[in-house]
């Protein structure tokens, strides 16, 4: 769990970075042999492509890392762990499965688009042509991930001091808003 917290803390930094650029605050990190090899944040607005999710961005970076370091891409993907602040959507879950990523650790659920059980269970459903199912660990630093999403959707300044932030009803409405991810 200590490792999970360590990596998720960093993934949250990338989500925060996305937020600062006006993107939906989702961040992720691919970890291979206890080393961060690729990171990603949402780039949907920047690329005008609704599929530029943090995971898709980071998957390509893993490929680049493999090319630069002389690693077999297929072998690397089979041994990585993905840390992502929000449950991967159906698109990303299917992409991760296709790349044979064995383990995904995420923060909060994604009730609008989630592909690891929230809407569909792409992570585990039998889909022989897409690849092996993957394992998930969920709820790691979920509150922090939700807080970032709320800041995005409510247009709050994430850097305002705690006591200056608008106190909105912040019950457990996990993820909200559009195009989370």
């Amino acid at each position: 769990m200590g490792d999970h917290i360590k990596w998720m803390t960093k993934a949250l930094d990338y989500a925060d970075e996305a937020l600062k650029k006006g993107e939906v605050p989702v961040g992720c990190i691919f970890v291979y042999e206890d080393e961060e090899i690729a990171t990603g944040g949402n780039r949907v607005n920047e690329t005008k492509n609704a599929t530029s999710h943090a995971e898709i961005v980071a998957i390509e970076k893993v490929m680049n890392w493999c090319a630069e370091n002389g690693h077999d891409q297929r072998e690397v993907f089979r041994q990585v762990t993905l840390y992502v602040t929000v449950e991967p959507c159906i698109l990303c879950a299917a992409a991760l499965r296709q790349m044979s990523v064995p383990l995904v650790v995420y923060g909060c659920g994604n009730e609008r688009f989630g592909g690891c059980g929230s809407i569909l269970n792409i992570a585990r459903d039998p889909l022989p042509s897409v690849g092996e199912s993957f394992d998930i660990v969920k709820g790691v630093m979920a509150e922090e991930a939700v807080l970032l999403l709320k800041q995005f959707y409510k247009g709050e300044n994430p850097h305002a001091p705690e006591d200056k932030r608008k106190s909105k009803k912040s019950k457990d409405d996990q993820t909200s808003g559009e195009d989370v991810h």
Partner: peptide, 9 residues
Amino acid sequence: PMCCMALVH
């Protein structure tokens, strides 16, 4: 499924 969701998004 990946591509279908790309079309939804």
